[in-house]
């Protein structure tokens, strides 16, 4: 076998190992979130959300951050839960804040950051990560709420569509698929047709256990599709990218944070363990490490696909752009202070 062929073979097999490890690590969290989401769909009536969720922006953001602390979920897990929350009529501010906040404001992330940096001014790093993360989350949600829901959310997730769908089923419409006037075309990203209330041929609401099973299955498979795509790209990049070439940039005041953001988005690490990886690079500056820790939980490569379960594709790139630029500016200014 020629040297390039050997290299290509090694690269392929190594990427398979990396891919398999990413999807098997993420799947239990994805499944857990699908179960939580299924329980919400089957057992929590939408009136609960309407009753006690705050409607104001500030209140909604506060509720989302508090939920992120007490219902910790990594990026993979939060997507399915948040999609279900939106379908159930949870206010957008709460749901979208939770989506961004839960990977960074959860106790496991805080503890792991402290432990990873325990010899490198841990409270400075923990405090900086939380503060800059908070600023970023508030900024993003504020900007998101300034846009029309139809601009940013996938079909079936806006409050208007959720109300319409609920009204359609409450009138006892027959849910047999042949009677629907539109195709259920399931493309790579889920459309918002919620089959949870579809009953059998008699048009009655389905038993809760069936609704639960269907919701778990739909949410798990729906988000799994994007985990598989994202993991494939991440696996190729994190085995083929020569990290040693990047080491020289780690101390630069401008390229350092850029490198940190780039690495975080390429490596696609869980926010509960990313601190250990970046803490182990002694040549990287504080700013480089902080940029890595702030940007990673907010957006990484696999979320380009997973977020399309909730957001329109163009908007996913808007998110990426704002997170990247915003993190760089904040870290650069913070480190300069």
């Amino acid at each position: 076998m020629s040297a390039p062929a050997i290299t290509a073979s090694q690269a392929f097999h190594d990427a398979c190992l990396s891919f398999l490890s990413i999807v098997l690590e993420g799947s239990p969290f994805l499944f857990l979130s699908a179960v939580v989401s299924g329980m919400v769909a089957a057992f929590v009536p939408p009136s609960v959300w309407a009753g006690w969720m705050p409607r104001s922006k500030a209140g909604g953001m506060g509720a989302g951050i508090i939920a992120g602390f007490f219902m910790p979920m990594c990026e993979c897990g939060a997507v399915a839960v948040v999609r279900r929350m939106l379908r159930q009529g949870v206010p957008r501010t709460v749901a979208l804040t939770y989506l961004q906040a839960s990977p960074i404001f959860n106790p496991f992330c805080i503890l792991s950051t402290y432990y990873a940096f325990r010899a490198q001014h841990p409270w400075t790093m923990v405090g900086s990560r939380l503060l800059l993360g908070l600023v970023m989350v508030v900024y993003l949600v504020w900007r998101l709420m300034g846009r029309r829901p139809e601009e940013i959310l996938q079909d079936g997730l806006t409050a208007k569509e959720v109300e319409k769908e609920r009204g359609h089923h409450e009138h006892g419409a027959h849910c047999d698929h042949q009677d629907h006037g539109h195709h259920h075309e399931h493309h790579e990203h889920e459309h918002g047709h919620d089959h949870d209330d579809c009953g059998g041929a008699h048009g009655a609401e389905a038993p809760r256990h069936l609704r639960f099973l269907h919701a778990v299955s739909e949410d798990f498979i729906g988000v799994l599709t994007f985990l598989v795509i994202g993991a494939a790209f991440a696996a190729v990049l994190n085995t083929s990218l020569p990290r040693v070439l990047l080491a020289g940039f780690g101390q630069h005041p401008v390229w350092g944070p850029v490198l940190g953001i780039f690495l975080a988005q390429i490596l696609c690490l869980c926010s509960t363990t990313d601190a250990f990886v970046i803490a182990a690079f002694p040549t990287f500056s504080f700013a480089t490490k902080l940029a890595f820790l702030v940007a990673g939980p907010l957006f990484d490569f696999k979320l380009v696909w997973m977020y399309q379960v909730i957001f329109k594709r163009r908007f996913v790139f808007w998110l990426w752009f704002n997170i990247t630029i915003g993190t760089f500016l904040m870290v650069y200014l913070w480190a300069a202070m």
């Binding site: 290299t7 090694q10 690269a11 392929f12 097999h13 190594d14 398979c16 190992l17 990396s18 891919f19 398999l20 085995t239 083929s240 990218l241 020569p242 990290r243 040693v244």
Partner: peptide
Amino acid sequence: SLYAAPSTFSAYTVLN
């Protein structure tokens, strides 16, 4: 990937 994944990374990834 279940079939093709080796038990550990080769020098290709380790050196990268």
